[in-house]
Computed example of a mutant assay.
Amino acid sequence: MGLVKPNTVTAILDKVQHIDDWVMFLEHLNHTFNIQLSQLLAVDLEVQALSFSVHHGLNIEANYLNQVALTNVRLEIDDDPRLRKSISEPFQGWMHDSQHFTEQEINQTQVYQQVLQPLNIQFGSAIQLIYDNKICVILALLTSPHRGALSSLELQPIYDMLPMLQQKIYQHRHHFEYSTRTLLGSQLIQKIKQPIAIINLNGTVLELNDDAKNLCENNPHLYLHQRRFTFTANHQIQFTQHLFELERNYNYYQTLDYTQRTKTMVLDHDLFLTLDLLIPEKAHKIFGLRPVVLATFTCLKHKTQYPRELYTQIFMFTNVEHKICEQLLNAKTLKEISYTFNIQLDTVRKHLQSIFAKTKTHRQSELVQLLMKFV
């Protein structure tokens, strides 16, 4: 890249006035410096809340990035050692993944396995733009294994821009401080092209996006009545039971594992509902309410081609395991899979146990829901 003069980027930065303008700045930053993904985020240190987050990635479909952001909402800030270190104390200069953390520290995190690896992102460099008694604002630059880590020479032009960038952030610091105007969750679900709702633990729908409204109007398995989801009889009982269990688990949220915070329902052979309990602090900081449940509907018939190569990278499936997962995504039963491939049912079950171990899931519905996040 060399010592590129970032005249175009600084010209764009000078035009930043509104909160949405920061995405335009990141887009030009990526293009000028050949960066795969960049992120500008802020943590309000007084309430320990992620108060601002925008990102841009070249050649990455916008709705997929929104899905990634939704996955990130479900994760804990403490899961990512880089972010944890970034907000714990002020530091000077760049923080590089390859220099400040071991490969194992990064690879074992959920944010790497569920967010970065599917995007083919490996290397990251971050710098604090502001760190005071109120907020910490961070610029993170991420690149692919093929692109390689950013060198000091490549980062120097961006470093030279920092005084101007810091001045702009101070000028518009209200963009980065926590307030009800900057709640991420409500904005996020409206952007995602998938039926999503926010409900409380008694089942009242607090907010839902247009896709969820359309689903309720056109799907025979559910409808919306007096701000509540209404299902067929058996599913209604299951839905109520799931909410009861999540409410009970809510009292012990500090020790909950994934299976205790998430419930999955199979509404039809091509329609799944996932209920994610967001812990009180996270719900309050992201959605402004406590506690809340994120209700995500997934329609199999709208999914794209089976992403074999991606699943191989993430889960290391064997050929047979790939075939089983593909059939499960097509709503096939284990008996149907056994018949299709002319193998014993017990053999299918043994392969399924191996798949469970590799994906850290425990039930077919949980497995399918996980796989659907990447297709």
Results as ranks from 00 to 15, higher is better:
residue 341 F to I: 09
residue 213 K to A: 12
residue 80 D to H: 02
residue 133 N to R: 11
residue 65 L to I: 08
residue 10 T to L: 15
residue 11 A to Y: 13
residue 51 S to D: 07
residue 371 L to H: 03
residue 7 N to C: 12
residue 312 T to M: 04
residue 348 V to Q: 00
residue 38 S to W: 01
residue 314 I to K: 03
residue 142 L to C: 07
residue 371 L to S: 01
residue 261 R to H: 05
residue 211 D to G: 04
residue 205 V to N: 02
residue 124 G to P: 01
residue 229 F to P: 00
residue 322 H to W: 09
residue 202 N to A: 13
residue 251 N to W: 08
residue 240 T to W: 06
residue 374 F to C: 09
residue 162 L to T: 14
residue 133 N to Q: 12
residue 247 E to D: 14
residue 66 N to M: 06
residue 355 I to Y: 00
residue 247 E to N: 12
residue 233 A to M: 11
residue 347 T to C: 05
residue 256 L to R: 01
residue 197 A to F: 04
residue 319 N to R: 13
residue 110 Q to T: 05
residue 64 Y to V: 07
residue 341 F to H: 15
residue 248 R to H: 10
residue 299 C to S: 11
residue 158 I to A: 06
residue 212 A to C: 14
residue 161 M to K: 07
residue 358 K to W: 05
residue 74 R to W: 05
residue 337 I to T: 02
residue 221 H to E: 13
residue 212 A to R: 03
residue 237 I to F: 10
residue 151 S to D: 08
residue 101 F to W: 04
residue 28 H to L: 09
residue 173 R to S: 12
residue 223 Y to S: 14
residue 287 F to H: 01
residue 262 T to E: 09
residue 1 M to F: 12
residue 269 H to M: 08
residue 302 H to M: 11
residue 344 Q to H: 15
residue 92 Q to D: 13
residue 162 L to V: 14
residue 67 Q to A: 04
residue 188 L to C: 07
residue 271 L to G: 08
residue 277 L to H: 01
residue 126 A to M: 07
residue 211 D to L: 07
residue 246 L to F: 08
residue 351 H to Q: 07
residue 184 L to V: 11
residue 162 L to I: 15
residue 99 Q to E: 14
residue 95 M to L: 14
residue 368 V to S: 02
residue 132 D to N: 15
residue 201 L to D: 01
residue 141 L to M: 11
residue 273 L to G: 01
residue 132 D to F: 05
residue 116 L to H: 04
residue 230 T to Y: 09
residue 140 A to G: 10
residue 323 K to T: 12
residue 75 L to M: 12
residue 40 L to A: 03
residue 321 E to G: 06
residue 36 Q to Y: 08
residue 195 P to Y: 03
residue 130 I to S: 04
residue 313 Q to H: 12
residue 161 M to F: 12
residue 95 M to D: 03
residue 82 R to A: 06
residue 107 N to R: 15
residue 373 K to T: 09
residue 109 T to N: 02
residue 324 I to H: 01
residue 292 V to C: 08
residue 363 R to N: 09
residue 331 A to D: 10
residue 154 E to R: 10
residue 148 G to N: 08
residue 140 A to R: 13
residue 356 F to C: 05
residue 128 Q to V: 07
residue 62 A to F: 07
residue 239 F to G: 01
residue 281 E to N: 06
residue 26 L to E: 04
residue 232 T to A: 09
residue 3 L to I: 15
residue 327 Q to F: 09
residue 314 I to S: 03
residue 119 L to Y: 03
residue 326 E to Q: 14
residue 64 Y to W: 08
residue 153 L to C: 10
residue 6 P to C: 11
residue 97 D to C: 02
residue 267 L to K: 00
residue 292 V to A: 05
residue 23 V to R: 15
residue 21 D to P: 06
residue 311 Y to L: 07
residue 97 D to A: 03
residue 76 E to S: 11
residue 63 N to M: 05
residue 227 R to F: 09
residue 96 H to K: 14
residue 79 D to A: 05
residue 277 L to K: 00
residue 218 N to T: 15
residue 178 Y to L: 06
residue 81 P to W: 02
residue 34 N to H: 13
residue 287 F to M: 05
residue 231 F to H: 03
